[in-house]
Amino acid sequence: MASFIQYLSQWRQARLESFINKRIPASDSHTLDRKNIFILPNWSGLCYLAVCAAIYLLATNYESNLGLLLCYWLLGIFLVILYLSYFNLAGIKLVSSQTFDVHVEQNLTLQIQLISDKDRYSFCWQDGYKTELKKVNASHQFVNLGWQAKQRGLFRFPRVRLYSTAPFGLFNVWTWLDFNRKTYVYPKPLTCPEYQFGTGRSDSEMDDSSNDENIGDSEFYGLKPYQLGEPLSRVAWKRASYNNEWQVKQFEQSISDDVWFSLAKVAGSEIEEKLSKLTWLLINAQQQNMTYGLELGHKVLQPQTGAAHLKSCLLALAKY
């Protein structure tokens, strides 16, 4: 029995979804009108009608024409409020902007530009944060809908429900909008300084070439604050002896020195942990203006530098 009910509700859900998908197709911008707005009186609206009915009974039983007039007039107001609630949403144009890639546990933000020609009130969104706009102006306004990025990979922004009960709270006016936006969620960066000058390629002959040797080839470049986990051999002890501040000697890599990061070479118990470490390494390498390549199983990205390269590397991690 329980499963039947479950089945029924699933079936209903599916029907609803297909109905909405047909009625409000996905698009990066929507203009709200008759086709995509739904409107129904809510509990308060029903209460209002109940009060009207009570007034009608009172007026009829006491044969009070004024009471009847009040009742009919309240019904008229109810009707006009229906229109007002509809016009509160109708006519607004919602344009979604480009989305940006994020890391796991960061906020996925869908930014929507609201182009309205008049003042509108109380826009409630059912996104991850239940965002509410108290007032939408005639001038430009943006709203950021947020979701928590939980999983690595492709994220499709879900159909979001926008609803409002303004201006009297008697009607629920709502719409379901799919902005047809997707974005990639990269792994969460996990600090991993031991590999910051590369892991080497998995099939490389110089498998055992240590990091220290690598550094030995490069020129002294500067000092930076010591972070836990960095090799003690590179701490500038002379400096530490007089100002008690541990700093690490940094060495500039010559441009030709390509750094490789390989999934196979990164230590870690789980694949997700390894990917997280690689994410940090890639970002760090870009910050240090290194030229770096990435090896993910069979997929190899040749050494390069620049934001675009970092992006393609991270994308590869996200899709892996």
């Binding site: 344009v95 902007s97 960061q106 930014q111 943006f142 970092l310």
Partner: peptide, 22 residues
């Protein structure tokens, strides 16, 4: 550089506003 972000925030701003709809 913001941690993890590949695009500058100013670029984000520019890319978000449609100048033809003002």
């Amino acid at each position: 550089v913001e941690s993890g972000s590949t695009d500058s925030l100013s670029v984000k701003l520019l890319n978000s506003v449609d100048p033809t709809q003002i």
